[in-house]
Amino acid sequence: EPLWIRPDAPSRCTWQLGRPASESPHHHTAPAKSPKILPDILKKIGDTPMVRINKIGKKFGLKCELLAKCEFFNAGGSVKDRISLRMIEDAERDGTLKPGDTIIEPTSGNTGIGLALAAAVRGYRCIIVMPEKMSSEKVDVLRALGAEIVRTPTNARFDSPESHVGVAWRLKNEIPNSHILDQYRNASNPLAHYDTTADEILQQCDGKLDMLVASVGTGGTITGIARKLKEKCPGCRIIGVDPEGSILAEPEELNQTEQTTYEVEGIGYDFIPTVLDRTVVDKWFKSNDEEAFTFARMLIAQEGLLCGGSAGSTVAVAVKAAQELQEGQRCVVILPDSVRNYMTKFLSDRWMLQKGFLKEEDLTEKKPWWWHLRVQELGLSAPLTVLPTITCGHTIEILREKGFDQAPVVDEAGVILGMVTLGNMLSSLLAGKVQPSDQVGKVIYKQFKQIRLTDTLGRLSHILEMDHFALVVHEQIQYHSTGKSSQRQMVFGVVTAIDLLNFVAAQERDQK
């Protein structure tokens, strides 16, 4: 057995438009009618409502009807409940999964919650491996369901041993009777949507819809739904939504950006999952974080739909894509998950301010006199920076000697690579993860907040409520011999709460 199987392995699926269902090699399930009293909570997966979006479509000038398939009504709160249950049931049916076995899954959280929910009911041990950027709410729900959680670096490539995929496979090879159901490759993922989600949409719309818009992560949702719609409703256009920084969209030119990270969760990847059939997507749109969270908040405030950030991405694209539809036509959007997962993220004004998705003037509360002053007023001194090749031991000596707790790590040209902190280095040394002679590049981390000289002290204040420091950066445009230009970030300084307090105190003292 291989040590790991690539999540982007070539698909062996034989589905073709027009091929009889009787030739399918898979076990198919028909939607079942729910009894009045459910035998367990797993029976509350599927049969989610279709809700008309009344205000947002009109606000953006849509002539067509805009409908939302509300997947956050599933038992675990997301569309991923469907595939989690289906993968477990299919693994039980073919004898792969037996009582007492362990389920391991690399996930952005929602599939993990679905699997942990099913594992709690069915009696399996469950280990979820997820990147650090995923919300604390997801972690809390997983723990409450009895799952064990392993976190991995957000910026690790999918084929790196440190990625959530790599760590999951390492655990599988170490733990007896453990299984990775593997949402990236498992046919049960798109089949769950082909058999149930798509049929529900067709039934709820009486077979009449002209466009379907869905955000894409593993691709199982859009693949399964689109294949069924292509068979039953061939005139329906399928629109895929991919965040900026991901590479799922086609044509490839759409993916060209210097951005590699994004805040919206559960969609987009740096590889093409095996289950994603991009041939059934008629057109791709890219979405960005700001519009995703703005539209998610709009869905909550104006439509009462308590959905997550990827739902915002989907609707932001839908109001663009559906401009081509006329009166009497219908566009369906998939709202994948609930706001429950993001209470401390985009639902929080403070978080939105820190990330730059909300401006101070958007909030009406009274601010102190210094709130709208610029960061450049602080008069920061030149920063202490270190090269990635310097040793951890030497870096600790320098920081202690100069009285700093942290320093930016830059390359020879001064471009920011990340940050090192005294606390992080000492804990890594004590844990045996690094040696004093190791290069400081081994303990770089990139989960820090950046701020510009033109940003306000109010925004800085919000950042420092949650973080010990902020890195002050400025952009530099560099022209190359080819005539092309590129933008790079340079370090201007490091600012802490002490710097802000000293500035405010000094100004008030001078005024007296």
Rank of each mutant, 00 (worst) to 15 (best):
K320P: 03
E361M: 07
L306C: 04
K442W: 12
L378F: 15
G493S: 14
C307R: 02
G328R: 15
K366S: 12
E401D: 15
G393E: 12
Y269D: 01
L305R: 01
M343E: 02
V410N: 12
L453G: 07
D289H: 01
A407I: 13
F503D: 03
T294S: 11
A311S: 15
E360I: 13
M466T: 12
V410Q: 15
G356A: 06
W284Q: 01
Y269S: 01
D499Y: 03
V415N: 02
L335R: 00
E475C: 14
D242C: 00
R509E: 13
L417C: 09
D270F: 02
G432K: 13
A506K: 09
A321N: 01
T257L: 14
K367R: 15
Q435W: 09
S461P: 11
Q507D: 13
N288K: 12
D277L: 05
V275E: 04
P273L: 06
G432L: 15
L378P: 05
E397M: 13
D277N: 15
F293N: 00
D242R: 03
D499N: 04
I267A: 03
G403D: 13
V375P: 01
S246R: 01
A322E: 01
G423W: 13
I247K: 10
T294P: 02
D362V: 12
V410G: 15
I247C: 05
L378E: 05
L299G: 04
H372T: 14
Y262G: 05
M419F: 15
S461E: 11
T257I: 10
G356S: 11
D349L: 13
T456N: 14
V281Y: 07
I267W: 03
T456M: 14
P251A: 08
I390H: 07
V491K: 08
V420P: 00
L422V: 14
F357D: 02
Q354Y: 04
K359M: 13
M419Q: 11
S313C: 11
E397P: 01
G379V: 13
I477L: 13
E265R: 03
G312N: 01
S427M: 03
L426Y: 11
L387Y: 11
Q478V: 06
K484E: 14
S313E: 09
W371H: 09
S338D: 06
A296V: 06
L325W: 00
T391D: 03
D349P: 04
A249R: 04
